[in-house]
Each structure stands twice: as C-alpha cells, then as structure tokens.
Design a protein around this nucleic acid. Structure first.
Length: 567
RNA sequence: UGUCCCAUGGUGUAAUGGUAGCACUACAGAUUUUGGUUCUGCCUGUCUAGGUUCGAAUCCUGGUGGGACAACCA
C-alpha cells in the first residue's frame, strides 16, 4: 500500500461490507452512488480504533469511486470542543486521506428542527415534562415493558408551543424533552419513546453559540444527517446495532424517494495491554498518568505518530486485522510487527549505544581516526553509504560484554573474536574494574588486515558475533526513551480493578547517558532510524541541538533475549 | 426471564454447499558483517447435539458460551 498516492494493495477477498457494497452496486441501488462519512464527535483525540473506521469509510469510497465526507457529530455542546476539530483533521490527513467535504451536524440544526416540528404536527412526537429519573423508571427494563408518560397524548398545539419554549430559553435544563411517540412496550428499548431533543443552556455551542437551546440527540441527528447528505453506506461499530431499527424508523417517517442510507455495523478494535475508551484516555491525560494525548504510550494517532509509527505501518496493521462482526482482542504483537515490517524497509541504520561501556583497542595508534564506509540500509540498495569515524577508544553496549560468558554468548568476552560492524575484527584481551568490582573498561586488539570491505582473506573470516559501537570522541550524547506496554494486564477493560491500578510501572524508561553516532547531529523531529541491533527509534519533538531525544518505536526481535529467558 | 448480534489453530482473518487456507505468534533449520532481515520446514482449528444433502465451517432447529441494549452521551 502506498498512502502517498492512495493506491491500495491488491486484496484476495472482500470483507462483508465490501461484499454488500458490491451487491448494491450490482443491483443499481441508489443510482450506483457510493457515499460514506467519517462522523467523529469532537470531544477527544482520534485513536487507532478510529483509524480502523477511517480506513474503512475512506477506503470504501476510494475503492468504489465514491466520496467520503468528514462530519463532526457535534450535537452536545457540554462535551465538545474546538480543540479537537483541528487535531482530528490533521490525523485523518496524516493517514493519507482527504474528505470531499467537511460538515457539522450542527449545520443541520435548522433542518432537524423543521423535521421535529413536522413530527409533532403528525402526532409522532410530544413534549414530556417529567424528570429524567421518572422517564428512566418508566422505560422499564430489557425484560419488562415500560409505561406511557402522562404527557404522551398532549394536544399537538401545546406540544408545538412547548417545543418553541424549549428552544427560546424559557425552559430550564432537564425540565422538558421532546420524545418520539413509538411504543413503550417494544422489546427494543430504543423504541420506548426515545428522546429527540433536550435543553442545554449552560454551555454555548462551539459553532452555533447560543442560537439554540434545544439540541437533538444522537438517534434523531445521526441518521437524518446521513439522509440530508446523501450517505449510502453508514458504517459504524457494533454497539449501534440495536439502534438500527430506530435509525430506519426515523427515516421511514419522512423519506419520499427510493434513496435511503443503510447502516452497517462492524467490530470495534480492541488491542491487548491498552485501553481504547475515550473516557479512560481522557482520565490518563487529566490525571497526568501519561504526558498528554500524544504520549508515545497512548493508542492515539498522535501518540503512535510520536512513538514513530508510520502511516504505512498503521495501514498494514489495519489490513491485517480485517472487519467482521466478531468482537475479539487483537494481540499488540501484530501492531508491533506491522511497525517493524514498515520501518525495516525505510529506516536508516545508525549506531547508538544505549548503555555505554568503554572499549580500548590497545594496538590501535593513539590519536588516529579512520573514516569507514557503512551501508545506510541493507534492505534498500538505493539508500547508499555514509562515512563513520573509527578510533582507539570506543563505546560498546554493556550487555555486549561478559567476563564469564556462556558458550552461546557470541559477543565480547576475553579470548573471543568479534567483528565491530563495518570496522575490524577484534579480540578481547581483558577488562579493568574498580575497587568495588565494577567494570570500568574493556580491552581488545584489532586485526589491521580484517578491515570491512577490504576484500582480504582476514576480513572475510567467519566470526560469530558483530557488535555496534561508536567512537567516543565523535559520538553525541542523547536521551533515549524506552517504552513498554502501558498496562500490565492483557485486557484492562475486562479487569475488575480500577484501570489506573493496572498501569505498567515500567512503561517508560528514560536513558540519559546514551551515545549516538555523529551523523545524527541534524536529525529532525519524527525522523526515524534503526539503532542497529537495538530497535527502531525516532526523534522526539522534545529534541534540540543541545540534547537529542529519541523514542523507541519498537525493539528489534531478539532471539538472544529469548534464549536467555529459557535458561 | 425480552430484542438484537456473534462463535474457524494461542491471536486475527479466509473459504459464500465441493481438498479448511493466510497472517501473526511459538518451535526447528538455512542464509546473514544487525542473535535483525530473508528463506524453508513444523505444531495447533470449524463451540455442541440433531436435521437437510451424494456432500455442511457454510443451510435449518435446539443447546452452550460471549457481547450489545434500560444516558436528557455519541
């Protein structure tokens, strides 16, 4: 998949929604028009679950030559904020999609009002002035029918007058609502005279200000908005399945042509070791349990972006998980795999030593500096090479040295040869410790004939291990942030404990003393790299010339670590 | 003692009445100047009981298990 040009990868089989769309097309439904919409409520940042919906909504339109509009579902001024409108648009664009039009449900307030008035005039709606508690009680339960409101058969003129008052500011919040007159005994709870309008006076609307005091509810606004816009396929998640009969009912009351939008529900995205609810994410942010909506541990689009995920990685992931009606939980390993798959092809390989240990090449001339050529990306022949500095004093990774090593330890240990990546083969000769037995430095001798790429028999020698390194004098200090899963249990949502108690205390580990190669000096925010043998990293926006800051997107697979765990 | 939805290896997803396949994971091996990548091999699956059919993962019925619905949220 190429998100830049919008070319989708060829697919072997259709998901159930694509099948419906193709059938509709084959049957000439809606004049063979395909129109979808992405309808976020501007009350939070988009997350990977939204990305799944975005890929479907925009993807269907793109694939079948239709259009997809962005519609902000802003019918509740209490919860919504302009703050989110911009970030939502930015995230959609970043994913590689462009909407045909931007709409706001609030743009339809006049039309919806007219429609509601029409419902009243036709005896399909009434103003109820009971309290929320009373209305809830009368609703019955899923197994018990409800009872009718005493206001249910109010004269039409009275309903019209009260509805006007609701919007004129003459009625207090909670004092009156407009309800559809359907069936209080319906086995579907949503048919028990659902609320169409409520009064909100405490908060101005982010777009319409104080023009309106009565605001439509989701069930009355959403389907009608779809209808006004000409949506043909209204795709949403499974929890709206029970709403569909009501969605259809409202439209049945006024539609006057063959056209009608069709709601289709698919499964929500759940991923192990994270939470996908806006409410919980908001809590994480507000209670400073993470550093913001774009904290790299968050499953938000901006968090994943800051973490170093590419749009391609997210598309790869979404393609792998598919769309069904089965409500499962995706292994976060699949998301990580998608990141590696994408970054492996694109990330420039660089040397970075996270936990430095001094290595002295005792037979290398003091003061000498050599420039060595090294590949930028072995997976991409067009990526070319660059020069790196080699000298007598280097840093290697602490974990790459062991004084008493097991047989399978193919790294630096006294008496064993290893290759220094793109440089020489060296043989460890010993190490030095302080009075407390702490390792200070390691010594090795290099084989001058073994220079990488020199073509000598010595350079072609088979050596078990290859280590990454940086020249001390030429390396740059850096802060490196290592992330792990935010939660320590697979499914925080299913846990009985408060989700905040389940946060992984080691989800962020900051390394301040890392050393990286000189070529990273001018790396810019969001540039991504592979730190050789370690993982994929990108430059955090906190980074500056004085202090480079990197985020670990995802570690490389590590079969040595696996081996050690077994032991 | 309601309505609606769902059930295929550990996870996710195909097969639309005709050989249960793919991806991830795990495991084993080959290659490798990243213990990465790549390649090969391999384990594991149709919730259950009936029925229809020459033939059922697929259609029907009953069970079992899971989920959604009782906001003046979306």
């Amino acid at each position: 998949m190429n998100t830049e040009t919008g070319i989708e990868a060829p697919k072997k089989s259709l998901n159930f929604i694509e099948q419906i769309v193709e059938e509709d097309l084959a049957n000439g439904k809606n004049d063979k028009r395909i129109q979808t919409r992405f309808p976020p409520e501007p009350n939070g940042y988009l997350h990977i679950g939204h990305a799944k919906a975005i890929c479907l909504d925009f993807g269907i339109a793109r694939r079948y030559g239709g259009i997809c509009n962005l519609r902000f579902d802003d019918t509740n001024p209490v919860k919504e904020d302009v703050e989110y409108v911009g970030s939502i648009q930015e995230d959609i664009r970043w994913l590689g999609y462009q909407w045909k039009n931007v709409y706001y449900a609030s743009d339809y307030f006049p039309q919806l009002w007219e429609l509601a008035v029409d419902f009243i005039k036709r005896g399909l709606a009434y103003v109820d002035e009971q309290s929320a508690e009373t209305i809830a009680r009368q609703k019955g339960s899923p197994t018990l029918p409800g009872t009718e409101s005493p206001y249910r058969n109010r004269p039409i003129e009275e309903n019209l007058a009260l509805f006007e008052k609701m919007n004129a500011g003459e009625i207090e919040e909670g004092a009156m609502v407009l309800r559809a007159k359907i069936d209080m005994a319906s086995p579907n709870m949503h048919f028990r005279d659902p609320i169409m309008y409520r009064v909100i006076k405490s908060q101005p609307h982010h777009r319409s200000g104080t023009t309106w005091k009565a605001y439509p509810m989701y069930d009355f606004a959403h389907g009608q908005s779809d209808y006004f816009e000409g949506v043909t396929h209204s795709l949403c998640t499974l929890e709206f399945e029970v709403h569909r009969p009501l969605y259809d009912w409202f439209i049945d009351q006024f539609q006057n042509s063959d056209y009608r939008p069709r709601q289709i529900e698919f499964n929500r995205l759940n991923i192990t070791y994270t939470v996908m609810s806006k409410r919980k994410m908001l809590q994480l942010v507000q209670e400073n349990l993470v550093r913001g909506w774009d904290d790299p541990r968050m499953p938000t689009i901006c968090g994943l972006r800051r973490r170093g995920y590419s749009p391609e990685a997210i598309h790869n992931f979404i393609d792998k998980i598919g769309y069904t009606k089965y409500d499962g939980v995706i292994d976060v390993g699949l998301l990580e795999h998608a990141a590696r798959e994408s970054l492996n092809k694109s990330a420039r390989r660089v040397s970075a030593v996270l936990e430095p240990l001094k290595l002295i090449i005792t037979n290398y001339p003091e003061g000498q500096v050599e420039l060595l050529a090294t590949e930028n990306n072995p997976e991409d022949p067009t990526a070319g090479t660059r020069q790196i500095e080699f000298s007598r004093e280097l840093y290697i990774e602490q974990s790459d040295f062991m004084e008493d090593a097991p047989k399978k330890f193919f790294r630096m240990t006294p008496g064993q040869e290893v290759r220094l990546k793109s440089a020489y083969i060296v043989k460890c000769t010993g190490c030095k410790k302080d009075a407390d037995g702490n390792l200070i430095e390691v010594y090795a001798e290099y084989d001058p004939l073994s220079k990488s790429g020199s073509g000598t028999p010595e350079s072609a020698r088979k050596v078990k291990g290859t280590l990454h390194w940086v020249s001390i004098a030429h390396s740059l200090p850096a802060e490196v942030r290592l992330y792990d899963r935010l939660f320590s249990v697979e499914n925080p949502a299913a846990d009985t404990r408060d989700f905040r108690e389940l946060i992984n205390p080691d989800s962020l580990r900051v390394i301040t003393g890392a050393r990286v190669e000189a070529s990273l000096k001018n790396a810019k925010a969001f540039d991504h790299f592979q730190f050789q043998r370690t993982g994929y990293f990108n430059v955090d926006p906190d980074s500056c010339a004085e202090k480079l800051v990197f985020n670990r997107t995802v570690a490389l697979k590590d079969s040595w670590a696996k081996e050690q765990k077994k032991a």
